[in-house]
Design a protein around this nucleic acid. Structure first.
Lengths: 354, 354
DNA sequence: ATGAAAGCGCTAACAT
DNA sequence: ATGTTAGCGCTTTCAT
């Protein structure tokens, strides 16, 4: 009888303690606890009973050691506040829990070394799979570690990561916005977006330039502003854009954060929207429809994206562990959709068009 | 040479493999890897080298099995979308990572059985601690499991959970809002909030009734509306409140979600704010300052709350594992602050006051 | 249906 | 400084 470990709260009750208490062998207890086919019903009952009485809690680590299959799934995101990632987190948490997995979350803020640390930790914990929004330039070691794991890339895609991906078709989204504005008569359309080092940033920029050309509009480099996905950046940039002597009559914002910053600038400058300038945002946080006349924006099927990502991962690792063939080629790309509300209208100067 | 495990991606390289390759004992490898004091520098170098070459990744489970100390911290939240919880998630993720822990996230949506499942999983994974926003009525078993772990209650507090807690002083927050409105001349002030089954709901409701009485105002039960923290509920309720023959001249919303619903109703009904009705919201998502004249609201020190919670937990489990004395009595309560913007003004009918 | 025994990968005495 | 050994809690043959 070992009785000197009261200190705080211990959970040292093992399968052996239960066995000893019952005067049976610990392997019988193991079988009883795991509903092994050949187990006496009565034994099973008694085992469960005393296990509960003793406060027995299985040791997942020991189990993993034997079976090589953990119940952990890693999620690596640059940020959790952002709408797309918070929706993803919610969806993944639900789906993983339903499939019997636990979600280990890590937030990198796009710092490659933080990213590496987390990937390492996940590998050490023998996570069954990892869903990751890779940073723009992951470290070599990160790439190596990732290559020996089941991975699904979410939202962004990195060419050196040979794993399936799920993302929104950013190019089409931005294109649709630009085209819509061009059709309204706008000629000077500005684009504010992420740097092209992320796949998402590059694609969206491409969507802008392509659509401009397709609409027969000149691409003025001064109207293309790339920078950090931060509210302050958008606020400052939109403000200066509006002070240009050849100011744009419409602005397309490339992310939800940039949209917020842009709106802040517009509000601060008391700019009439859409009378003085038209605006198309990106993403659709719940308040976009409440602001002013309602913000016209590029909606993204957030839930569907997240669902696709987990499904892809779960399919590979199976509902209880047997990793099946990899399908690294899979690339799921979902279409965004233009949501027309009140911030887009023909430009003031173009009222006299046919 | 075992060479038949290419299937997908395995990480079966163990400390023994490294030892064998080097012709030394596995314990030497273990020491080298862990920077044990008495280790030959050259040996250490070679060990690290071949470990890297072989793609060795430590097995955290095995380590936990020996040392009884994992690197896991559990976070149990009813929701991640909500501002307070998303901020908490971000802060905790950062702080935990810095302290060398991994954050396992679970979302309960206040379902007690889901809550239990997650607590069980955390205990099985031998999580070093749990930060939880307990559901209104946790199951017995959940309580029992929790009592044998290091726990910090976040945002909500349950009387049967004997663990330190961190929360905002909801009563004071709501009181301040009501008092402010009363001082502006409002007499019919409505309150829309959470059910009183959660500590937060009960406190905020108390803040309302107390402040009303203190201001010498009659508490009209018809102006107190409690319900699910859902946008639709607030939308419907605010709409019906405004259709009352004795409609309120001011409304206090008890959560951020309810505030959004209320705003939606006001916008849909084209109600003049604050001319026809004053509004005070709860929380301060970034868009509150952008809507209309800016939403007056009860701000909560979100980051500080989250910081306090991790600090409390980390202090108990220590930066690397030695659980220290519990301090279950600790209750950190942080004060909210009234943010006055444009949605509050004297009631139309009271313009003629002194 | 149950018990005995081995071993998963690792750390930590204890030897040397 | 390094090797030997035992054992953490569990599952899983292999006997019985």
């Amino acid at each position: 009888v070992k009785n000197r470990k009261r200190p705080a709260a211990v959970a040292n009750v093992t399968i052996k303690d239960v066995a000893e208490r019952l005067g049976i062998s610990h392997s019988t207890v193991s079988r009883a606890l795991n509903d092994h086919p050949y187990t006496n019903a009565e034994t099973k009952r008694r085992v469960n009973e005393t296990a509960a009485a003793l406060g027995y809690v299985a040791n997942a680590g020991a189990r993993t050691l034997r079976s090589a299959a953990s119940t952990l799934i890693g999620l690596i995101l640059p940020d959790v506040q952002n709408e797309i990632f918070s929706v993803a987190t919610k969806v993944l948490a639900n789906r993983c829990a339903n499939a019997g997995y636990q979600l280990v979350l890590s937030v990198t803020e796009d710092d490659p070394s933080v990213e590496l640390k987390h990937v390492e930790a996940f590998r050490q914990a023998r996570a069954m799979g990892i869903i990751i929004t890779p940073s723009p330039e992951p470290l070599e070691k990160t790439l190596a570690l990732l290559s020996s794991t089941v991975v699904v890339q979410f939202s962004r895609r990195h060419r050196q990561i040979n794993a399936p991906s799920v993302a929104a078709h950013g190019e089409r989204g931005i294109s649709a916005a630009v085209t819509h504005l061009a059709q309204l008569g706008h000629r000077r359309i500005a684009y504010l977006g992420m740097p092209a080092d992320r796949s998402t940033g590059a694609e969206r920029l491409l969507g802008y330039t392509r659509a401009m050309k397709l609409c027969g509009l000149a691409v003025d480099p001064g109207l293309i502003q790339l920078g950090p996905t931060r509210i302050e950046f958008a606020r400052a940039t939109v403000t200066s854009l509006l002070h240009l002597k050849q100011a744009p009559t419409a602005i397309v914002l490339g992310t939800a954060d940039l949209t917020q910053g842009g709106i802040e600038a517009l509000r601060a400058g008391e700019v009439a929207v859409p009378a003085a300038v038209s605006v198309v945002g990106f993403g659709d946080p719940s308040w976009f429809k409440l602001w002013g006349p309602g913000i016209s924006t590029i909606g993204v099927p957030l839930v569907e994206l997240a669902e696709a990502a987990v499904s892809l991962l779960l399919r590979q690792i199976g509902p209880h562990g047997e990793t099946s063939g990899s399908q690294s080629q899979t690339q799921i790309v979902l279409d965004p959709f233009l949501i027309l509300r009140g911030t887009t209208a023909p430009p003031a100067a173009a009222q006299r068009r046919p």
